[in-house]
Amino acid sequence: MTHFSKLSGNSIPLQLPLDDDPRTDTLRRTQAALIERFGRIIRPQDKRRDPVWTLVQGVIGARTKTVRSNRSTDGLLEEYGSWDAVADAAVEELTERLALQTFPELSAQRLKDCLLAIRERCGAVSLAHLAALDTEEAMDWLEALPGVARKIGAQVMNTSTFDRPVMVIEGHHRRIMQRMGLIPAKADTERAYDALMPVLPPEWSAADMDEHHLLLKKLGQSHCRPRAPVCEGCPVRANCRYAAARR
């Protein structure tokens, strides 16, 4: 059985195996089919960035392509030299520096609020202390920051140098899981996370979860689009409730 730990109202599963749910095998088949179609997408260890960099990229990245958010995040650190210096910059100045983002003014305000909150709690803009916390405690800490919800919290824990076994869920990922019938049809990101984490294959590592997310994102861009999904030729069609209903 998988047991749940309640912290700050969030229900996050401890990593004890639960392998009797049919969704677990469906996820395994989905992963295999996606790898066969798209090939492996493995994030090299040298591409795992500092947790604060990862947090900043998530906070400023609303509805913006990843490559642009990466460029903006790198640009901020290069120009200011430290995240504490970024926290001290005026919102108007940050807005100019975030011109590539879809919502530069909103991104600038959220970023400044988030960095100042970290410094108020830690004395400096650093997330190093999270390494000593259990994953669910670290997620709770992150989600208490301004502008940080489940997706960004999971992103920091999974894709940064923390390399923790939690699943990042964004729009493409959630939509595909809903259409496949693996999570409730109207689940938001937090509910999707709580539904999926207990049924992930217990042998999956943090890197496997990262790859699963990246593969689903690729599927969402190529086949399982928000509108007019292309079910014909979809590699996971055999396991998809939506595709079966269309047939």
Rank of each mutant, 00 (worst) to 15 (best):
R241A: 15
P51L: 07
L18R: 14
L106Y: 03
A90C: 06
H212K: 00
T135L: 05
A154P: 00
A89T: 07
L7Q: 09
L142A: 13
P202S: 09
A89D: 10
E170Q: 02
L16G: 11
A243P: 01
L14R: 13
A238R: 10
L127Y: 06
I169R: 01
V168Y: 03
S222A: 12
E105M: 04
S160Q: 06
L55V: 13
G123D: 12
A85K: 10
R247M: 13
E203R: 07
P226D: 08
R227M: 02
M180D: 14
E136R: 10
E232V: 13
G9Q: 04
A33F: 04
D74I: 08
A154S: 15
C234S: 05
L7S: 07
P146V: 09
N158G: 09
L98C: 01
A132R: 14
V56F: 02
S5G: 00
S8E: 14
R191D: 08
Y242N: 05
F38K: 01
S107H: 05
R191L: 14
S205K: 04
A62E: 13
D140H: 12
L216H: 04
G153P: 07
M167Q: 10
D25S: 13
M157K: 04
I35C: 13
A32I: 03
H173M: 10
C224A: 12
Q178R: 10
Y193T: 00
C224V: 10
Y193N: 00
R68Q: 15
D194I: 09
P165H: 02
L18T: 10
E203S: 14
L106A: 13
Q57K: 06
L7V: 15
N239A: 02
R174F: 01
L115V: 12
E96W: 09
C234Q: 01
V52C: 12
C224K: 08
E120M: 06
P201T: 02
M197T: 09
T24R: 08
E92K: 11
Q15K: 10
A124S: 14
D194G: 12
W83F: 10
D19G: 04
E96R: 15
L7W: 02
R191F: 04
T64P: 11
R179S: 02
R97T: 06
L214M: 14
K218E: 15
R175F: 01
L77Q: 01
Q57I: 00
L116C: 08
T66R: 11
G123N: 11
A185C: 05
G81W: 13
A149K: 13
P229E: 03
S69H: 01
N10G: 00
D88V: 07
R97F: 02
V86K: 07
G123L: 13
E203I: 05
E78P: 01
M157C: 14
E78G: 08
K217Q: 11
D21I: 08
R246Y: 00
R71W: 02
G171F: 04
A132L: 11
L133C: 06
F162M: 15
D194L: 11
M1N: 03
K217W: 14
S107A: 15
P146I: 11
Q101V: 11
M139E: 11
L106K: 09
A206D: 08
P184N: 03
P13S: 14
M167T: 11
L27P: 06
L196A: 00
P184R: 02
M180N: 12
N239G: 03
A89E: 10
L111H: 05
P202K: 00
A131E: 15
V125G: 13
E137S: 06
D88L: 12
A32D: 12
